[in-house]
Amino acid sequence: MKILVCISHVPDTTSKINFTENGTKFDTTGVQFIIGPYDDYALARAIELKEAIPGTLVTVINIGPAETESTIRKALAIGADDAIRVNADPTDSFFVASQIAEHAKGYDLILMGRESIDYNGGVVHAMVGELLGIPSLSPVMKLEIDGSKVKMEREIEGGHENVEANLPLVAGCQEPIAEWKIPNMRGIMSARTKPLKVVEPKAVDKTVVVQKFELPPAKGAIRMISADNVAELVTLLKTEAKVL
């Protein structure tokens, strides 16, 4: 089986977000980049399937500039066999999905995260499925291969559904689909020599353009209430905050 895992290169979840150049550029000062947390689940499930099904190959793909290669190498260290980097800024979901679809033909299973934690589109999987004409499901919490069939559990509002589809398919993953994997020394050493192919992007018409970024307004001061006077909180929520 051939599995393609799509990984985004995103600021660590603890990062403070800032912008420079009049709110037109993301400020990378002091920011650590990681494999998207949901993409990490997708990768972990792919590696589990590779261990369970002999002959399985796992390729990772990222759409990003040269800086993302350290993140790609980490995915190789975790156990992917080879990697593709599409050399372009991942400007929007449709652009990213179009690039992935271009390289995804021939793969049985395309695993992604449920969403990227920078763009939060939650849509690249659906777009890739649409572009390839194959089923796509997200967010998937469990995924088992049963011959040519895939049995999944998908989270829905206030619950979950069991859903089946045939290979090939696209799945956007989230916990508890697999446990995050940490690269070991051997993995890190072997990742250095695993193939990482760099390709130029396919031309895609721009359908959306980001004009600028903005931070939310700063939070006002907190009002503390004594533990001996809990009723005051209820009064304030009614009369001051007007949310009750």
């Binding site: 939060n120 004009q211 970024f213 903005e214 939310p216």
Partner: peptide, 10 residues
């Protein structure tokens, strides 16, 4: 964007 930490104008 950035999980509620910022906004963009598109």
């Amino acid at each position: 964007i950035y999980t509620g930490k910022a906004f963009s104008f598109v």
